[in-house]
């Protein structure tokens, strides 16, 4: 018994070693990375965007350090106060400091965007890889599933789901994660379809690697470029979707500060305190724009086929 498992382990190590040879592990990968970085650096707006998102990430991780006032403390006597030197973006409809809420809202935007993206990428990658690699009835079934989700206008589906589950931060993440994956599945499927016919996949199969191993070790690394690009472009879309949901009252709920929720407050008091609605929208715009520019840069760096001429 133990001899047999030892044997299997040996075989595993053996396959590993041979695969490493096939893939030219180590050295080649590092130079590929630096070459991609070199290409990315040439796209200046992308570099600026990366710095911006880097700074925002720090704000999202430790918002307390940057908030000049409490983001939740109300002050009804000063409600709707216009921008002043002390409160550069003014106060909201119940007297909270708009700048502090904006800073705290960064955290919510990042939490939702990253978690929803992770969920949708995980589903999209799995479905796309299985669909493309196995073909046949697996592909037919999964493709209909993807078609079904793509036939829903996304926001309409999200609103319905959020209303039924009951809106909250968790709901928002789950609802977005469960609905936006279909487009990744399509892209991954198409890429896997072409990669699985390449020689190194045949070679891996010839030396005895099983399907799971081939998918994870050989197919996926070769479709990673387009996926990273897609993911970075998707983050922007997710931030807008979250803001739209929160704006309509079906995303992040009060009193948690979110950019979309702040816009909803601004809309409710648009006649008396129009300043509340201005800055959250600018933050959404800049953040989405930055993620999109990073995506464009990554496309040039990682996915030469799709490069926009």
């Amino acid at each position: 018994m133990s001899g047999q498992s030892q044997n299997i382990a040996d075989q595993g190590a053996d396959i590993q070693a041979r695969e490493n040879m096939l893939a030219g592990e180590g050295h080649a990968r590092r130079t590929e990375f630096s070459r991609s970085w070199g290409r990315f650096k040439r796209f200046k707006p992308g570099v600026v965007a990366l710095i911006f998102i880097g700074l925002l990430s720090i704000v999202a991780i430790i918002p307390g350090v940057f908030e000049p006032y409490s983001y939740s403390e109300t002050n009804l006597r000063e409600r709707g106060e216009s921008p002043t030197w002390e409160h550069p973006f003014g106060r909201d409809d119940i007297g909270r400091d708009v700048l502090s809420r904006l800073i705290r809202g960064t955290r919510v935007a990042f939490i939702v965007a990253l978690s929803a993206m992770t969920i949708s990428l995980a589903i999209g990658l799995t479905v796309g890889a299985l669909s493309g690699y196995f073909g046949g009835w697996v592909d037919a079934t999964l493709s209909r599933l993807v078609d079904t989700i793509m036939a829903f206008p996304l926001l309409v589906l999200m609103i319905t789901l959020a209303a039924v589950i009951g809106p909250s931060l968790q709901t928002t993440v789950v609802v977005i994660g469960l609905t936006v994956w279909s487009q990744y599945a399509r892209v991954v499927r198409a890429d896997v379809l072409s990669v699985r016919e390449r020689e190194f996949v045949f070679a891996a199969r010839a030396i005895g690697a099983n399907d799971g191993r081939i998918i994870v070790r050989h197919v996926m690394p070769n479709v990673l470029g387009p996926i990273i690009v897609l993911a970075s472009l998707a983050v922007g879309g997710i931030i807008i979707l979250e803001a739209a949901l929160s704006f309509l009252g079906l995303g992040i709920q009060r009193p948690t500060p979110s950019w979309g929720g702040m816009l909803a407050d601004g809309r409710a008091h648009i006649r008396n305190y129009p300043h509340i609605a201005i800055v959250p929208g600018i933050m959404i715009f800049l953040t989405v724009l930055a993620f999109n520019l990073i995506g464009d840069g990554l496309r040039d760096a990682l996915d030469p086929r799709q490069r926009e001429s």
């Binding site: 922007g236 807008i240 803001a243 739209a244 704006f247 816009l263 609605a277 959250p280 929208g281 959404i284 715009f285 800049l286 989405v288 724009l289 999109n292």
Partner: peptide
Amino acid sequence: IALPNFWV
């Protein structure tokens, strides 16, 4: 593409 239309 990056502009949230509800804000505009």
